[in-house]
Design a protein around this nucleic acid. Structure first.
Lengths: 116, 116
DNA sequence: GACATATATAGCGAAAACGCTATATTGTGA
DNA sequence: TCACAATATAGCGTTTTCGCTATATATGTC
């Protein structure tokens, strides 16, 4: 019974959000939604170097977003909790709302050049 | 018609998530869900110093999460887009799922001491 | 034991975030 | 014009990210 009760939702949520605030990590997380994967598979799927992949995975594992299971020399990483899965559901919902045009956000990348 | 089409959802989303990955900023955002507020009100509500408050607001404004409106010497900040509002809805849904016990996440704060 | 495979870890430099103190800017009213 | 109120900005030191290269570790195979 870990007593985390005095830590507010904001502390917890912000920590998770921060950990997901990286494009490659988001891609990894989404990839893992279909189930556990080895480091090698993740690496090839996302297109990252081996150390970078490993570092992102470890980063998220330390923050309890991922866990892993070992089998011989292979490491299978997977989503650590239903909460993360719930969050991913939310993300997908937001994504759809964006892509359908239901909502939009103006110029998250204002540095984007037009016609160059 | 800004052409952001070649920038994937992951880039956009991660940028927003990163910006929200801070407890005080989350609090601010949630506070603004009820409508626009002056810097002073936000500052008092969240309990931050004036410069810190201003900096967080500017940080989020630069990332197009907030916008402001000026009236005399007062600055009214408010949520910049429906997408952000949608995201907040998702957050609330996740929050409820956490608090109701429907989902949980184990030890996001492992450094938390027990009985000390 | 030699070697390959799969993955983790260390170390490093550049960049960004963070919180703080001090100061500048701008509008308002006497 | 002077002073005040509301807010922004600058500058600084510390910490955290980030991506990279190089190396270590552990397991399986011959």
């Amino acid at each position: 019974m870990t007593e985390v009760s005095h830590i507010s939702f904001f502390e917890v949520a912000s920590k998770v959000l921060k950990a997901l605030g990286h494009p490659e990590r988001l891609r990894i997380i989404e990839y893992l939604q279909t189930g556990e994967q080895t480091v090698g598979n993740i690496q090839r799927e996302i297109g990252l170097s081996q150390p970078i992949t490993s570092q992102h995975l470890r980063y998220m594992q330390r923050r309890n977003i991922l866990t892993y299971r070992r089998e011989g020399t292979k490491y299978y990483y997977f989503l650590a909790s239903d909460f993360i899965r719930k969050l991913l559901d939310c993300m997908r919902s937001c994504r759809l709302s964006l892509e359908s045009g239901e909502t939009q956000l103006l110029d998250i990348f204002p540095e984007t050049k037009r016609s160059e």
